[in-house]
Write a protein that binds this DNA or RNA. Structure first.
Lengths: 225, 225, 225, 225
DNA sequence: GATGAATGAGAGTTCATTCAT
DNA sequence: CATGAATGAACTCTCATTCAT
């Protein structure tokens, strides 16, 4: 019984956050109406305040949930046994897709920090998400595939910055996912690789970039092994 | 007489836009109060409406002016006789500095597009600004320093995306301009370079990374020669 | 419980309409302040908007209610068994009294039509009210007491036009109900009568002009008989 | 020179009143914008205040001018030598036409009385206009064509009331002048006539209903003779 | 006299939040 | 726990009027 009760509450909380996410995404923070959120969640306006103190904290909960889900999704998208390069590509794919789908929430994220006294650090949930990239990269550095001299945060800026800007451009033009953005980005990341030479005489009709990278990795593996 | 009158009006318009820019930057679009803008511009509330139809159009004027000034500033920041690499660095420096100073206005820019019927293209003023980068790069391609196979827009996404994301990170951490971001970005852009060396006789006033790049170039020159 | 709740809402709505009617009557449409209406209805300003979308629709509700009540009152004022002449007099009495009491609302009525797309027909509530007169007159025509050759709408114009103009004159002079206006109007309406006498057996409670008319009628009866 | 100056001022004043009349008629008192009036009169906003203290007094001047012009027009419309009946018809024609053309100004007239301390008498200009009707009627009474027992003001109420109500109905239905309204009204006025015939030798240019009335008169003449 | 830029009080309306039921 | 009617502070925008030029 009490389990049922608790489950019902949690389901409601979830429904509320989903509704709020949609409304915030459609109308922006200030454009979002508590009444509209309540209507979509099929609850009374006053009920929202039983779950969240006010609009600001509802926004924070929405943003928090968004990035948690994003992290969960990113981890699920990675091949556990995949190479560093493959995982980077998977993450890039996932990230670009997510940005295109939920661009408004990403933009709104900064509004969730607006608390008195907060001297302005990033939200912990975002830090968590960003760590997915860092983990992959650090694995690459550990495997001596990436040069340890370039700070991780700079690579991060290139990785996320490029994807975010590409997504903004695509969304603005009402376009969808564009694989060449990913290919281009990954080719660029080769720049950060160690000076270990690339294999010579590779086929020039490379499809996706993955094949080429995979071959390079297998080559490196043999070499280092 | 009429000159004095016209000048006074233009000065007022300028004062108004400066005040509005500041308030929008501090409080965001919805947080900005027309009363506060009027107070800062030292005019009556109603006077704003003599210059701009409503809040939305005031915002559009602010954003328009911001990007126009940004373009003007960018062009002024470039050494007319500088090499492609040097101009890229100058633009990157200028852009990162500007973003750090006026991050809020950049974020707010998207709000200026919210007009009925606009199916979502970028603001023309931004396009103008972006063309500064394109012009430099196309000059590079024309000089066969940059590979023409990579679409310009993809390079653009890396350039602006990385700088924007870096700026956001820096601003969030209450940090200021960080030259290593620029260095890193330019090193990356070497990836797009052809092996053909840049033409000789370029200005020698390049610093830090510029020196490194110059050395690389000279090295390549010897090699190819 | 829910009955109590619903009743309270309806009572509030009624209180609001009464207050709005008074303020509109005193100050005119544009002179009426929503704040004043709220104050009189003893509710918050915002509460008005729970019941009516905006000032215009509040005005429409006020006007609608006014004419509905007027029609209800007119029907109640008529003797069900009364002769055509008597009912005409009763209606004229009622109408003149009502006009004197609520002249401002009648004047304001035209403002309630101001809707986009409405190419300008009369409000349906007024049509309903006017039908009270038409019904009496058509009964008279059916009984062959009134000449069918004169269009009903022309008689209506004389009836309502005279009463309205008289009311305006009286109100302007700060005077009250004047029975001679009615007597005069009814004498005039004899002009539209056929020489055929009204059916016998009508109520004998007719006063003043009614007596005169009755005598005329009886006289005509003898003549025609 | 000073004559030219004075004439220019008077022409301006006239232009201003014409513009103001149009705007008041189109938009109502509160809907009329001083800026729009100035624009139509092709003068600056501030200039209005050189001629009229404020909006209210401008309205009063507009209404005053309207009724003066109406009286002037009415007198011009009457055949100096016409019979009482003919003049009544001419006045009715003129009045109905004027009402249809300038209904809004008539409605607005009441707003010109709104002065503090005015206990509510009619505007003197309207009284003047109404006297045109009274003069005709009193001439009829003097000629013993109309019964002196019915107060003039009651006949006035029927005359103006019917025409005003008819005009309102016509205007509301986007219809134009309807001669049957006049015919009907004049037939009705026969009710007020004495059996004493009108004096002979009147102009024979009467048409439609006039012919009918003339025939009735001649008939009565024979009878009484 | 004529101008029109500037004023600023005041209006209608919105909506996050509360609390009696 | 849930409701949703009620609140009222706060907003943007209007426009009659003024006054320096």
């Amino acid at each position: 019984m009490s389990t049922t009760q608790r489950q019902r509450l949690e389901a409601r909380e979830e429904t509320l956050l989903v509704a709020a996410t949609a409304v915030f995404a459609e109308s922006g923070v200030d454009g979002a109406r508590m009444a509209e959120i309540a209507r979509r969640a099929d609850i009374a306006e006053g009920t929202i305040y039983l779950y969240h103190k006010n609009k600001q904290e509802l926004l924070e909960a929405v943003v928090d949930r968004f990035w948690r889900e994003l992290t969960r999704g990113a981890l699920a998208a990675l091949s556990p046994q995949g190479s560093v390069t493959q995982q980077l590509k998977e993450l890039a794919d996932y990230h670009l897709h997510s940005l295109i789908d939920d661009f408004k929430i990403v933009e709104i994220t900064s509004r969730a920090r607006e608390r008195q006294g907060e001297t302005g650090r990033q939200l912990p949930q975002i830090r968590e998400y960003v760590r997915v990239f860092d983990a992959i990269l650090e694995r690459g550095i550990g495997l001596q595939q990436f040069d340890a001299s370039t700070p991780v945060w700079q690579m991060r800026d290139v990785f996320y910055g490029t994807l975010e800007h590409s997504a903004r451009t695509l969304v603005l033009r009402n376009q969808t996912f564009d694989a060449t953005v990913i290919d281009n980005l990954l080719l660029l990341f080769e720049r950060f690789r160690q000076t270990t030479p690339e294999v010579a005489g590779q086929t020039k009709t490379e499809t996706s970039i993955m094949d080429a990278l995979a071959r390079i990795e297998s080559h490196l593996t043999k070499k280092s092994g």
